[in-house]
């Protein structure tokens, strides 16, 4: 019997398949379409300290083999999450990973502090694709100093597993991963969306309400696989890989590039049962190839 069990830092997962933040809500929308308990873990959409109303529409548009989104982190805020969403999520018998973001280091730290000790939260994921309003709007995830300092601040308030989710919109993701590791992150997740734009030629204006957005889906997959491959060579931390995973073969590419777990985002919109299908597909692949333990595949694409 092949085992899909995997481990990312202290976190034991029954399968390596997670939901990508922001694409699966708080899970309830998909509950009638699949058995949520078959997920390796549920990464919920990013929450912030206070509610956020999000960006003006249109918020998304399809692009060749992908899509652009500019949701603007619409979410009901920490208080609502703790009162209304967390109690429901605690009843699910799968690891819950909470994605957080803020406009200042203090906001991230306050979130970590409020969540420390809450039962049922298996890990925190830092969404680093957010502008730091105190530093002129530069993204936390694009500056080594900002990123290192932010991870350190959160680390001081959060004793559980800490995931740093990197943005690919930088010259070299590896430097940023090192900064996250030095700050105390336990796991690296990659990639978040790649910035892009579509012009509405009839209006002669950017199509999205926010003007630009983040690209996801199969179009970004080769970029994401390369980043995971590079991270695996450069850092010791476990990696959660994502970007355009639609099927078992896509997931295998990320695992062989070095991911100990993978997340599905845009794929859920196309086929809500993508994760259950890949879970079955991975098992079949391993059994056919005589692989007993998923770890035999992690990083298999690298020469030893």
């Amino acid at each position: 019997m092949s085992s899909l069990k995997t481990r990312i830092a202290k976190l034991e997962l029954e399968t390596p398949l997670l939901t990508a933040s922001g694409t699966f809500g708080f899970g309830d929308e998909y509950a009638s379409l699949m058995n949520l308990e078959g997920l390796g873990g549920l990464v919920v959409k990013t929450i912030t300290l206070l509610p956020r109303s999000g960006n003006p529409p249109p918020r998304l548009v399809e692009t060749p083999a992908g899509m652009l989104n500019a949701i603007g982190l619409q979410n009901p805020g920490l208080q609502h999450f703790l009162e209304k969403e967390l109690p429901l999520l605690q009843n699910l018998h799968i690891p819950l990973i909470l994605s957080i973001a803020g406009e200042t280091e203090e906001e991230y730290a306050a979130l970590a502090e409020a969540l420390e000790g809450c039962t049922g939260i298996a890990a925190l994921e830092l969404n680093l694709s957010c502008p730091n309003v105190k530093k002129g709007g530069i993204l936390f995830g694009t500056d080594i100093v900002l990123l290192g300092s932010l991870v350190e601040k959160v680390r001081a308030h959060w004793t559980g597993t800490l995931i740093a989710k990197l943005t690919p919109n930088v010259t070299d993701v590896v430097h940023l991963a090192h900064a996250a590791a030095r700050g105390g992150a336990d796991v690296i997740a990659a990639i978040n969306t790649i910035r892009g734009m579509v012009i509405d030629i009839t209006k002669r204006r950017p199509l999205l309400g926010n003007r630009f957005g983040g690209l996801s889906g199969p179009a970004v997959r080769p970029v994401a696989v390369k980043i995971v491959y590079d991270l695996y060579e450069a850092i010791k931390l476990p990696i959660i890989g994502m970007g355009g995973i639609m099927n078992t073969n896509d997931a295998l590419q990320f695992i062989m590039a070095g991911a100990s777990a993978v997340a599905v985002g845009t794929g859920n919109f196309v086929e809500p049962r993508t994760i259950p299908q890949i879970t079955a597909g991975l098992k079949e692949y391993m059994e056919k190839s005589g692989i007993k333990d998923l770890h035999e595949l992690v990083g298999a694409a690298h020469e030893s």
Partner: peptide
């Protein structure tokens, strides 16, 4: 409005 998930999960179809 343009839609991705269609089921309320992505907040993409806001008005």
């Amino acid at each position: 409005e343009n839609m991705a998930c269609g089921v309320g999960a992505c907040q993409g179809c806001a008005v």
